[in-house]
Amino acid sequence: MSTEIAARVKNEEWKASLTSERALVRWALIIAALGYLTLFLFIPLAAVFTEALKNGLESYFASFQDPDALAAIRLTVLAASLAVPLNLTFGVAAAWAIAKFEFVGKQILITLIDIPLAVSPVISGLIYVLLFGAQGWVGPWLAEHDIKIIFALPGIVLATTFVTVPFIARELIPLMQSQGREEEEAALTLGASGWQAFTRVTLPNIKWSLLYGVILSNARAMGEFGAVSVVSGHIRGLTNTLPLHVEILYNEYNAVGAFAVASLLTLLAIVTLIAKTMIERKTASSRSAHDPAWSTQPGSPS
């Protein structure tokens, strides 16, 4: 038994040796990578928390008692809770259409979905100012009817939605494309309605990727600065989201307050990463459970 294990270990080592470098090169690469990560990721992360806790826990928590900070938290959560469901609906619909059907303009739609990733968030915000601002295209009409979009919640939600459009759709499209249409067709031939096929076959097949997309989208929605900054107007207690509030505090030399609020966003990022990792594990295990068996079907003509 032990010789069998020893043989297996040896075999693994031999396999590893096929693709590995000499020890010196290996260590040099590891140190370079670690140094890079320390400099650009770990130190800033640690700095956020050291700065935030510089004057002790008491002043750290005091930063959140401030009504403006509380308002910023509320607004951020509200904006995200509107933007994420919007993108959830759009993302699933777009991915469904792109993955399961052929139609004219499909390539254009795929490209359009990526636009928010390609343009600077500031420009995304400016687009809405141009459209809805006081001097914008529909601005005068809105003013007449007393509808406020820019420098108000609707503008913030619009900007947030715009920058987070790609996350869910991009997560789902490749998965749904690889899953094909056959399971849905099978459901239809078995008498399911389109809605039943969607809720009972399509959704369960994409649920982990969907959740993954929602989490990424949420993180981006809560952390968005540029686009929101342009449309928000920075009215304290009214149109300031968390990232904007950090900026204001910092500009007022309230470093502890700024970093305390920043640490909230950092915590959100860490939680997001943990959730993301867990979901990745989950999808990896469900994929490894399905895919090998799924893909061992020998290709055959039809």
Binding site: E182, E183, A186, G191, R200, P204, N205, S300, S302
Partner: peptide, 14 residues
Amino acid sequence: RVGFVFQHYALFRH
């Protein structure tokens, strides 16, 4: 009310 059997089975994997 037609039964259809697919080449790649199309079983519901979940």
